[in-house]
Design a protein around this nucleic acid. Sequence first.
DNA 1: CTTGTTTCGTAACAGTGTTATGGAACAAGG
DNA 2: CCTTGTTCCATAACACTGTTACGAAACAAG
Lengths: 194, 194
Amino acid sequence: MDPMARPVVHTDSVRQELLAAAADLVDREGPARVTLRDVATAAQTSTTAVYSLFGGKSQLLTAVVDDGFRSFRDSQVAAAPDGLRALGLAYRTWALEHQALYRLMFGGALAAYADCRPSPDAAADAMEPLLEAVAAAQSAGTLLVAPVESVATAIWGQVHGLVGLELAQVGSPDTDWEAVFASALDAVARGWGV
Amino acid sequence: MDPMARPVVHTDSVRQELLAAAADLVDREGPARVTLRDVATAAQTSTTAVYSLFGGKSQLLTAVVDDGFRSFRDSQVAAAPDGLRALGLAYRTWALEHQALYRLMFGGALAAYADCRPSPDAAADAMEPLLEAVAAAQSAGTLLVAPVESVATAIWGQVHGLVGLELAQVGSPDTDWEAVFASALDAVARGWGV
DNA sequence: CTTGTTTCGTAACAGTGTTATGGAACAAGG
DNA sequence: CCTTGTTCCATAACACTGTTACGAAACAAG
């Protein structure tokens, strides 16, 4: 009994191909131009696969965002040994290299597209290197002793905000964002340093 | 000759009703839930009016954003006499009161929805009170003398970034954002003060 | 080879932005 | 007053979206 029936084609490898295709489309065309038919075609399968493997478009995009947080966190971890300022610079670099994905992750654009949010843990994990760097600087005596999370969030906000303004192309078109970013990091050091 | 033909119904008042209906829907349901048919129904006209008065959905949303920048600028102008810190507080207040609109204006969400950007002038105008406050503080000797635009952009970035993180609900769910915001403003004062 | 069961590609559905079309509305001339 | 001419706009069609239902395909067992 219990015949094996038709073999499964919607395997985990197809799942990863769909993820890659979706991420690629998001980065190249922006989230609005991502259609399930295009994603399925790029992954050489049908739209049904998205439903059987993810549940729908919003879950697929959520998975893309979660992957983005992992990649972002890796870049933060890699920069962590070089200190706080390196974290800030790595933050901007990653954002500029993955603009569409960055917007999807932090711009709240995803919530606007589909009623879904990335796993809160992903964002928290990405913040971990910063938290550790802040704590280390505090115990090293180079940073004001205040609630770690407050300091880290404020610093994150500074970096995040400047990147956001740069990506939104707000302000004067000929702004030297790199210089502004550098002097903002200086001001952060002065503002939170001992 | 030149008969007057059928009288015009798509007047400027219909245009403003459409704008109001669209802004209302954006604020209540978010940009993704805004459909031309709903907007037209709310304004008691047909979808054609959107095309004859704005050109399409993206232009309608752009107009909503431009209006948002005007409202935002007004709140900044109102807070300007009370100094730099008041500008920051007013910034956050306005953003929290118009979350969906704020995301549309600064989150780059609009570009993701439709291929259009708000008039750059609108954002520049909104920044004017901050520029003046920075310049005033510099000549009063309470702020580091550095390129006004760099200082203003960095400060704007700090405020914008924290608000963005708060709206995106990134970080610990029980974060006391008001306190973080206040201490960040303190750090800005220390970082850029003389 | 038939049967039974599971799987998934195709095609249909509801809803979107956008465009085309035909009727509606009025001034001028008979 | 009616016809005509001209302009305008609401309705209906179109192409495309995410999603769902269906029926054919694929294999094990009898």
